[in-house]
Simulated assay, not measured.
Amino acid sequence: MIKNLFKSRVALLYILSISMVFSFSAWMSLLNNYVVEVASFDGSQIGILQSLREIPGFLAFTVILVIMFIAQQRLAYISMIALGLGVFLTGLYPSALGLYLTTILMSTGFHYLETLNQSLSLQWLDKSKAPIVLGKITAAKSFTSLIVFVLIYIMMKFYNVEYKYVYAFFGLVTSVVAIVAWIGFEHFKDDVVQEKKLVIKKEYWLFYVLTFFAGARRQIFVVFAGFLLVEKFGLDIENMVTLLFVNSVLNIYLAPKIGKFIVKVGESTTLKIEYIGLMLVFTSYAFVDNIYFAFFLYVIDNLLFSMAIALKTYFQKIADPKDIASASAVSFTINHIAAVFLPFFLGLIWLYSHSLVFIIGALIGLASFILSFLVPLHPSQGFETTLVKKESIV
């Protein structure tokens, strides 16, 4: 059975996803409390750190240059090791400079791995089943996050383990799993030979724009939603981990159902629902004064992330199979264009108005919602947007 496991492409996708989440969830769930309690960060410093974290994401297109010399699967293992090493070192250097440098190392591994994971998923999974499998993988990632939060809670609540040892544990596990997977899994050949150059096609323009907005709104949630709970409501690490635990439990149950929902109603309808939800959540964030309502918003916001599967499968349906690796790298760069400057810019705004930061997020949701009407009910190669259909009628 174990021998067959190491011959399964889907199994490897699960391993890559779970290992990535194992260390990154620990890094992220501890971050807001760690930088406030140990490093004494303010809003502008956390904005700088998060901007630095996204620079490797902005440079994700360089994956294409690297896979000219290193196969995608092998590069994924190397990226996983870098991610684990970055997390391992985070707790050892609590100064601003130390955190900035370890964040760049961690982020380089994370974003390369995320880019390659998406590329391999869209290449290896059947289009008709991709949303369901990706939904199950999302659930597995959430279950992994749940385990991470339980371990962190036990380590810090009952045993008072220092931040540096918690970070070291989670980073080391990811690196070790990467080495085991590298040795154990067979190397899978590409069914379709991938382009080894950057591919930016006008046919994919809508996917690129929606990806850009997705990156912008993700930054507002990742950087400032959690920071709001800690700074405004004084949420401690135990309660923050409990909240993340609740998110994981809900995702385990709902993510596979969201995958099936996408198969049933299509990407266009799913994206519209996601963007309406974003507008409501961000507008509510701007004026929330009740900590329990803030908890509710944080949970709903997190669940909306699961619907992002629809954007991936929309691209899978419209893309030329040989473009997937290159276009995935380009899309990650586009996703992080706003991420490079937005946290720093919004960090400055945060010093004067928390509400304005989330109002900007609501406007991003509105722009995405308007554009979602251009996503066809049944997208395919040659029918990438509803504008194509209108032109063909004329």
Rank of each mutant, 00 (worst) to 15 (best):
I237G: 06
E231K: 11
A255M: 11
Q194Y: 06
F185I: 00
V299L: 12
S268N: 09
F207K: 00
V223Q: 10
M307Q: 01
L228Q: 10
Y208P: 06
F245S: 10
K201T: 14
T269K: 14
A308T: 15
V222I: 14
E274Q: 12
M307P: 01
I318G: 05
D236K: 03
E203Y: 10
A294Q: 08
V241F: 13
K260Y: 11
L311V: 08
G215N: 01
V199A: 01
F293L: 14
F212N: 02
K232Q: 13
S306E: 03
G234I: 09
A294D: 02
F224L: 02
V199N: 05
Y253F: 15
F212H: 06
A286I: 02
V265Q: 07
I237A: 09
V223H: 01
F287I: 13
D190V: 10
A214Q: 14
Y204P: 01
A216P: 08
L250K: 01
F212I: 00
H187K: 15
L278H: 03
E186S: 13
F305W: 11
F295P: 06
K197V: 14
F305D: 10
V249A: 08
L254C: 07
Y204K: 00
L250T: 00
V192Y: 04
D190L: 12
K264H: 13
I237C: 06
G277T: 02
F315G: 00
K197A: 15
A310Y: 02
I262W: 01
M307H: 03
I262Y: 04
A225C: 07
V246G: 00
